[in-house]
Amino acid sequence: MVNQPNDLIKKLQEGDQMGFTALMDLYQNMVYNTALGIVQNEEDADDITQEVFEQVYISIGLFKGQSKLSTWLYKITITKSLDHIKKKKRKKRFGIVKSLFGDSEVEKYSPVEFNHPGVQLEQKERASELFAALKQLPDKQKIAFILHKVEGQSYQEVAEIMNKSLNAVEALMSRAKANLKILLHNYYYKNLSDQ
């Protein structure tokens, strides 16, 4: 039975399939939920999770063990998720250009409203509004907020994952909260005035 991350890394580097299975058992929910928080789409998060573990399988030999295995996995997940968002935006732009030239094929995009499956039923509406606002934050603020608030990581761990100092993470978090407040205020004022 392989449980300790150090044993896991050793087994993985030896190409042990059981080690890979154990790694996935341990970290699949962590990877999936991080990706889900960033991309806000369950299918995309599932794709990213697969990509992350494929990447881990290929490049486990490059892992030197200088950081925690979970930190390394978080880093890969964040990179893949941000790449995915960029790719999607590019596709969307290309779709608009295609539609200008009369191509009627409309691509499916994720719905605007995202309901996180882990949010309690009575909180769903407010949470989806928060996630919609979160989408509009700059990448670094968004990542810091998700890692701390959704993934429950401490500031120190967020700093390690993001390769930043503790002060930088604190600053990112306070800017993220301030920006979210502004975005949510604007949203609710608009909604109240429309009613």
Partner: peptide, 30 residues
Amino acid sequence: KNVDQLVEDAFNSINNIERASVKPFLLSRV
């Protein structure tokens, strides 16, 4: 006051967020 309350509620809505589960057969797909 209402808006401030709504913003506060939005921030608090993810306080007890649970982890979502991955779709089955992830290992086979990977």
